[in-house]
Structures are given as structure tokens and as C-alpha cells.
Design a protein around this nucleic acid. Structure first.
Lengths: 240, 240
DNA sequence: GAGTGGTCTAGACCACGAG
DNA sequence: TCGTGGTCTAGACCACTCA
């Protein structure tokens, strides 16, 4: 039952009979329309919410989610949009704090516990909707970074980081799929039932010292990651 | 309420008071114990199911999921286990069929629609539990592959493919996080609420022709993917 | 205060698994 | 057949939004 109702509503959304940002009828009315109880109808909406098709706003209603542009994270540390997106609608907020290496962070960065770090908390936006979270950690002695509180795009953040730190030799990225924590879901304004792409990135400088570690969180319905591996057929360097 | 019950049960599982493969008390008994209704208790169990901590088996009960070994997919096309896993417990079933390029597959492989392909459907197991699905597509004229129905590990599949096809120049991998389809969840024996890592891999041969495309699906709670990017500081080749 | 979604209750009925 | 989980009902009560 729940799935057939979800199927019907999904078809209405995909064919455009329900338009982006449009409010669905109230749950009580939808339940009456489909002749089911409210919990059953809510289960159907939960399916669509998990697919990222609708957004529930407490006290206001259920809304068709505007289909946003796909975001592609490119291995090595770049953020890109698939299609042409108005540059003006893109922005990134950056907040820098000083902190100290705790637990897993210390081992990622290969620094002693409690050594001083700079933490950059970055949130990427397209228009008003956040699409990505990034927390960057840099040993404080390596890079005296200063960044404005808001920059036009990810390129600015990447450039500022690249200038401040030593040249990089390689970057290792671990990619995982999971459900968001409650705070991640709130920050990205997505449902807790929507999968996210979690990327842990560790970059090593040419000196062999870890220059930077970063945690990225991307909403699964609008982001993917792209990695390119070159196969050296002639002389194979120690790639791992 | 649902979350506090989930927290309590989670603590019991993590601390080992509930052991792997152990059956939980019936939902009715748990509901009575926590003094909540059965739907509320079931919501709590759904939280744990989404975390991959329990497995529900209709007609039998709820079981603590055995914590299985972490699987790491290494960019470029290798499957690896983090820790030492008994080789004997690993196996891969392979089924080959002949098919034709349809829709997106044709554009991935850059072949005309309906051109003949070989399809390999591979399922990786650790013991009795499946951990990964892979569908590999190869233009039929490029690689007359023959594989047994069951091989000991992923290395055998990789080796057989590597022998049959021309040498590779590069591999592009697109990684996405999403919820599994019903059939993927059934094949991996995971909950439909557990995120999966979906990887689309396209390998180009040294001739410039696409040699292989593959779709991989890995359970989010036990798999991640690792990619390494080398930064060429001296002379930067056209890496993309 | 009216209308919306968020959560929970108590219980019915069905489907599956094992003896 | 019995005990299990799977799904749905009808309705209560609370929290949030907005006029």
C-alpha cells in the first residue's frame, strides 16, 4: 500500500503534475484521498523523502523538492558542477577555529595527541540550499591560513589552502556511504533517511609530512565523486 | 522514545551483552519491557537495522548481526580486506551471459546501441554472507572471456579480465551513495534502509577504446573505497 | 487559534518459519 | 498449529508555523 501510494505521487512529481516547491495537500487530505490511515500515508511520504523527492517542513507541509544541480567531487580535492550553474548562486561559508588533535584526527595527521591544529569548517551553498560540508584540519605550524567568512566558490578555498601549505605529493581518499547523523542532516537540510557520501581525505606533502586532512559530507541525491586512475604500462611507479 | 530504546539496545550490542547471532526477545516482549506499543518498539529496531546492527528475519526474530570484516575497494579495480580474513571463507560466484548494449550502457562503453556485449554478474561472499555485487560489461568482440561459475576470490576475476582484454590506459570511477533497490538489498541481504556505495567504473584501453564498464554495489556498513591521487609537481601531465 | 506535521497508542489481521 | 515479524487502522496528543 505504502509503495503504491509512493509510486503514484512519484509519478505525479516526475511528470511535472506536481511542480517544484509546490506544497502537497495536507497529510490528512492525502490520507482521505487514498483511503488510508495517516500513519500509512506518512510511510508513503517517507519513501519519497528517502529518495530526496519531497521535503517535510513541520507546521507548513510537504513540498516537492526543487531538483538541484548535480555536484561532482573530483578526486584530489576539487568540487565541480556538472552543468552550467549561475556562478552568482554559488557560495561557501568558512569558519576557522583553533583546536587540538584528538583521537583519530591525530593518527590521520600523524601528529602527537593535542598538538595544535587549524580547523576550517566550510559549508557550500547553491542559492539558499547547502550542498556540502567540509572540515579541514591543518597542523597549525604548517599553514597560517586566514580566510574570509564567505567566499564565492570552492575554488577560492582550494586556492587559499594550496598557497598556505607546502606542495603535495599525494592524496588518499577513503569514501564511504552511510546515513547522516542528525546534525549532518540538519546542516544539509536533508532527511535522515537519505544516504550521504562521506569522504576522508589525507594529503601528504613532498616532505613526507601530512599536510592536511579533511572530512567531507555530500548529500547522496545530488552529489557523486569522480576518480581517475592512470595505469602505467611501461614503468609502474610505486602507486601504493 | 524510539531513539532512547535504540540507544539502550545499541549499548547492549556494542558492549557484548547481546552477542553476535543471538536472538533478541520477541518484539512483543521487548515492547512490554520498555512499556511502549509495538509500532514504537519496531521503530527503535528500524534504527538499529539502518545501522546494520541487527537483522530481521520474518517468522524467526531479530538477530544481532555478526560484525563482518571491512571490505575496501581500491580505485582502479581491486577488492581487498582490511584485516586478515581466512582465504577459505572468501569466494565469488560468476555468471556470464550474452546481452546487448542498452541505453546508458551503450554511451558508457561508447558503442552503438544493441551491439553485442558479454555481461559478468559477480557476487562476492565472505562465508555465507554476500558482501558485494559487480556487473561487468565488455564488448563481445574484445574479450572472449570464459570463467568458472565459482572462483576463490576477486583476484581471480580481475586476473581473468585483465588477460582477456587489451592493456588499460586509465580508469574513471564515479562513486555515489544511495539506498539500495529492493533487489540489491535482497542480494546483499541488507536492510533497504542501509546506505550502499555504488561505483560505476569505465576503463579505457591504450587504443583509446573503452574496454570495460562495471557497476559495483557495496553494503555501506562494511565497505569503503580508497583512491590515491598522485600530484605531479615537476611536469604535470594531462591528468584529466 | 487554526492548520500543519511528529509521535505514540492499542489492537487487528496477514504472512512466514518451524515443529 | 503456534509464535514470530509485517502492515495497517483510528485516533490521541504535542510541537511548530503563520495569520
Amino acid at each position: 500500500m505504502r509503495y503504491s501510494i509512493a509510486d503514484d505521487l512519484r509519478a505525479r512529481i516526475i511528470t511535472g503534475r506536481l511542480k517544484p516547491d509546490e506544497r502537497l495537500p495536507s497529510e490528512a487530505k492525502l490520507a482521505a484521498h487514498y483511503r488510508v490511515s495517516t500513519p500509512t500515508l506518512r510511510n508513503a511520504l517517507a519513501v519519497l523523502q528517502g529518495e530526496g523527492l519531497i521535503e517535510k517542513i513541520h507546521g507548513k507541509g510537504n513540498f516537492v523538492r526543487r531538483q538541484l544541480h548535480q555536484l561532482t567531487y573530483v578526486g584530489g580535492g576539487h568540487m565541480a558542477f556538472d552543468r552550467e550553474v549561475p556562478r552568482a548562486s554559488l557560495r561557501v561559508t568558512v569558519r576557522m577555529t583553533n583546536t587540538r588533535a584528538r583521537g583519530s584526527l591525530a593518527s590521520l595527521l600523524k601528529v602527537p595527541l593535542h598538538s595544535p591544529l587549524s580547523e576550517l569548517l566550510c559549508v557550500g551553498y547553491e542559492g539558499e540550499s547547502p550542498h556540502s560540508l567540509m572540515r579541514v584540519y591543518v597542523p597549525r605550524d604548517l599553514a597560517p591560513i586566514t580566510l574570509q567568512a564567505e567566499v564565492p566558490c570552492w575554488g577560492s578555498v582550494e586556492a587559499a589552502l594550496a598557497e598556505a601549505r607546502p606542495a603535495l605529493a599525494d592524496t588518499q581518499e577513503t569514501v564511504a556511504a552511510r546515513l547522516p547523523t542528525r546534525s549532518e542532516a540538519a546542516a544539509l537540510r536533508i532527511s535522515t533517511a537519505l544516504a550521504i557520501l562521506a569522504i576522508t581525505r589525507v594529503s601528504t606533502g613532498i616532505t613526507g609530512r601530512v599536510a592536511e586532512a579533511a572530512h567531507l559530507v555530500l548529500a547522496g541525491d545530488r552529489a557523486n565523486a569522480l576518480f581517475t586512475t592512470l595505469h602505467m604500462t611501461r614503468e609502474r611507479p610505486a602507486q601504493r
